[in-house]
Design a protein around this nucleic acid. Structure first.
Lengths: 237, 237
DNA sequence: CAGTGGTCTAGACCACCGC
DNA sequence: CGGTGGTCTAGACCACTGC
C-alpha cells in the first residue's frame, strides 16, 4: 500500500547518503523535492511522514525538515499488542502451555466491570500456565463472555493462540487493548507460582481487549516473570 | 491547527447524533459527506482520521466507514511522556520535592551506556525525593552529560521541573523517551525509602530521553509507588 | 520580507468489496 | 459491475520562521 511514498522515501534516503547530509542538516524544501523527484508535494509529504515516524527526520514549521541522529529501533513490547505466546516465540524460545482449566462460570466482579456486563453473567474462564524452554515464565487467566464466544471454546479442544482461535471459530478480530501495569502483591496465589527465588519478581498486566467494533471481548490477567520479560515503551510529548 | 478538520469532525458527530446512527451502522461515503458539508474530500478524510484516532469509527477499504461503540477515553500515563511532577499535579495533588543532592560526577556504567558516552565522563547527577500532599511517593535520579547541560544546573539554584529548566537554560527540548518498566529488587536502597508498609510496592522506570535531534540528553531512574501511580497503555495490533 | 511547512481545493485514477 | 475508500496530481492560500 502506497508504494510510491515508500519508493520516494527510499530515494530521499539514498539522496541523503549520496550527498553526505549530516545530522542537523536541512533537507531541500518539499517543493524542491517534489520537483526533483517529479512527483506531487502530497507524495513528498507522505514520504517525509514515514521518515518522521521512523525517527529519521524532524520537521520545524516555517523553517524546514532536518536530519536526526541515526537511531536504532528498540523492540518495544508495549506499544503494540502481542500475545504472551508471541513474545515467547519472538525471543527465539519454544513456547509450551499447560491448560489448568477451562470452564463456564459466573463472572466475577472485576472482570464484569471491565467487560461491561453484570456480575454473575456467564463467562468462559480459561487459565493457563506458560513455559519457555520448559521453565514456567507466565500465568494467564482469561475471561470471555459466553454471549461473545458462544460455546466454541468449550467444544473444541483448545490449544495454542487464543487470538487465533477467536478469529477462526468466532469471527472475532482483536485489534487492541487497554493494559494496566501492576506490581502484584507477593501474597497473590498466582504470583507465588512464578516466584522461583528471592530475587525474582512478577509483573501483572490487566488487559481489556477490543475488537474492530470496540466491543469488549476478552479480559486477561497476565502474570509474567519480570526477569524474563522486559517491557519497553517509546513515549512522546 | 487544522481548525476546519476539527469543525467538520464535530459536524459529523452531530450529524450522527441527530440521525440516531447506531454502532455498526455505516456513515455516508466520503464524497457524499464532502458534498453535504461543502468541503473537499481531503478535509473529510482528515476529520475521519481524527474520529478513527479517537476510536469512534473504523474504516473498511471498499465497503465504508462504520460507527464503533462509544468508548470512554482512558487517561493513559504511558503513551505520552509526562514528568513525575506532571503526573502528581494532574492527579490534583500538590507536588513538593526535596533535593537530596546535585553534583558533577563520573558517569556510572549503566547511565553511560544509555547516554552513549564513555564510563567516567563527567555528568551532572541529580537526586530528588518527591512528595504528593506531603507523603513521599517517588524518588528520581537523573543523569545529564556535562557536555549537554554545561554548568547551568549547578550554577542556578535548581527547583521545579527539570524539563522546563533544560528548555530555559540550555535550549534543550525533550520530545520523547524510551522507557523500560522494571520491578526493582526489594533490596534496592532507593526502593526501601518508598516501601511504607508490607503491602506497598514500587515500580522503576528507566528512561532515556531524547531531544528533537534524537540526542540522548537525560537518563532517569524513577522509583514510583505503585499504589499511588497506575500506568495505563492503549495497545494496538 | 522571502521561504518554509500546514492546509484546503478540485479532479483523476486505482484497489477493494459486495451484489 | 457500481460504489467505496486509498492515493496521486496541480494549484492555491495560510501560518510560521529567520533574516
Amino acid at each position: 500500500m502506497s508504494v510510491k511514498q515508500e519508493q520516494i522515501k527510499h530515494q530521499i534516503e539514498r539522496w541523503i547518503q549520496e550527498h553526505h547530509i549530516r545530522p542537523g542538516d536541512r533537507l531541500p524544501s518539499e517543493s524542491a523535492l517534489a520537483g526533483q523527484f517529479n512527483v506531487c508535494r502530497t507524495t513528498i509529504r507522505g514520504a517525509i511522514r514515514r521518515l518522521r515516524n521512523e525517527g529519521k527526520v524532524f520537521v520545524k514549521h516555517g523553517s524546514g525538515t532536518f536530519i536526526t541522529r541515526n537511531l536504532q529501533t528498540i523492540p518495544s513490547s508495549l506499544d503494540r499488542l502481542y500475545s504472551i505466546g508471541d513474545m515467547i516465540r519472538s525471543a527465539g524460545l519454544t513456547e509450551e502451555q499447560r491448560l489448568e482449566y477451562i470452564r463456564q462460570t459466573a463472572c466475577p466482579e472485576e472482570a464484569a466491570e471491565q467487560l461491561e456486563m453484570k456480575k454473575g453473567e456467564p463467562v468462559i474462564q480459561l487459565e493457563r500456565s506458560r513455559m519457555a524452554n520448559l521453565e514456567p515464565v507466565a500465568h494467564s487467566i482469561n475471561y470471555i463472555p459466553v454471549s461473545i464466544a458462544g460455546k466454541t471454546l468449550e467444544a473444541e479442544g483448545f490449544s495454542g493462540s487464543l487470538f487465533q482461535h477467536l478469529e477462526q471459530h468466532a469471527g472475532i478480530h482483536i485489534v487492541g487493548a487497554d493494559s494496566q501495569i501492576i506490581v502484584p502483591s507477593p501474597t497473590d496465589v498466582h504470583c507465588q507460582k512464578l516466584l522461583t527465588g528471592p530475587e525474582s519478581n512478577v509483573l501483572l498486566l490487566k488487559q481489556i481487549h477490543y475488537d474492530e467494533m470496540n466491543r469488549r471481548v476478552l479480559y486477561s490477567l497476565d502474570y509474567v516473570r519480570s526477569d524474563i520479560f522486559t517491557f519497553w515503551i517509546r513515549r512522546t510529548r
